[in-house]
Nucleic acid binder design. Sequence first.
DNA 1: GCTTATTATGAATACTTACTCATGTTCTAC
DNA 2: GTAGAACATGAGTAAGTATTCATAATAAGC
Lengths: 210, 210
Amino acid sequence: MFYSRFSMRRKPSQERSRQVVEALVEATAQTIAERGLAQTTTNHIAARAGVSVGSVYQYFGNKEELVGALLDKLVGDLGHAVDRGLPLLLEADLKTIVRGLLQAGFAFLGGNEKLYLELARNWDQLSTQRFLRTLERHLQEVFRLYALRHYRELHIANLPVAVFVVTNSMVFTILHYLSLPQAPCTREVLMDELTEMAAGYLQGSAAVAG
Amino acid sequence: MFYSRFSMRRKPSQERSRQVVEALVEATAQTIAERGLAQTTTNHIAARAGVSVGSVYQYFGNKEELVGALLDKLVGDLGHAVDRGLPLLLEADLKTIVRGLLQAGFAFLGGNEKLYLELARNWDQLSTQRFLRTLERHLQEVFRLYALRHYRELHIANLPVAVFVVTNSMVFTILHYLSLPQAPCTREVLMDELTEMAAGYLQGSAAVAG
DNA sequence: GCTTATTATGAATACTTACTCATGTTCTAC
DNA sequence: GTAGAACATGAGTAAGTATTCATAATAAGC
């Protein structure tokens, strides 16, 4: 499944152990959401998964691999979410698409905002980068497809850079918004403004080739 | 100076001790830039400042206060930088202003990119928030002044939200750009695109009141 | 049932690090 | 010059945590 990236110390062959691995990854997510990444210890994770610390090291070489496995799972979820919502969107106009993507983004966060906030807090570690790169790849595909259908309206010289700018602006602004103790505006207003900015930029863009 | 926010354990009254405090804050900046915030220990800081660990606790209640003092200093620097560059910009048109602000932003980073990147890595802690809020306040002032002179061209219903969106988009996109092992485009191209996006948004904005 | 491979355990280990405090040094005021 | 205040020192303390490993339980193969 999602434990392919990191060479596990031991590959679980019985059903029992496969469940332990799954429980450990799930417990990692819960513990990070609850206590923060820095305060998440291997003992906490093991306890929450209902196993002993030793079992962690039966399947994961170290703590980092555990978090890596969690990230792999989330990146997979992200891919599925985009693939599901994509076909419906492409018929609409640019503004509707952007709004739809933002809506989908918030939906993806679901109830796990604390987890994603904690992971975002530690962007810049390679693991989090992987998440953003995946998102960028998907969005590039969206806008590539959109450009094919509406080649008259859209003039983006440098699609990767445009997507980079838009993606990062959206993601980080939303994350920072969510992390604020008291919001400066409603979620709707934020989405309106972000849509305005992104759609306007993508529509009117005559990006210089880089 | 910048050690007012945190009630220091002991207020330095002699010149000698004032220099120690300064050296400690400077050493904090250097050590964070060099080793990262997580790997920065009080012993490292003391060693680099050329004093013993005990002296750290002579003036700062804990490690956090040290970092807080550094943040205070940087926030002060930021204020001065903006105040210096501001009057010149307000005569220009919106695009030039935004471009100028971005340029000023990069100039502010100066050679300290690693330090700011490390601090940004730990946004969401209250200390970093303070930095962003200061920046937002300054930019709100800039655009408020601009709006007074060009009230015909600019129609921003909700200035605080617009500034929030633009500021966060710019800052985090730039920080992420800087943190990438290999850049997806030149710094110039990035600035062009960000300018395009922000200026277009601020010009054409008919923001919904929130 | 018996043997072997797989899985689970958790006290013990080894290491790091923030912070203290008893002692020593330097400054200042008179 | 000397008393007392301010300052400096750094080995030591306490607390936490990733990881190991000898031992025990469970499953699979025959």
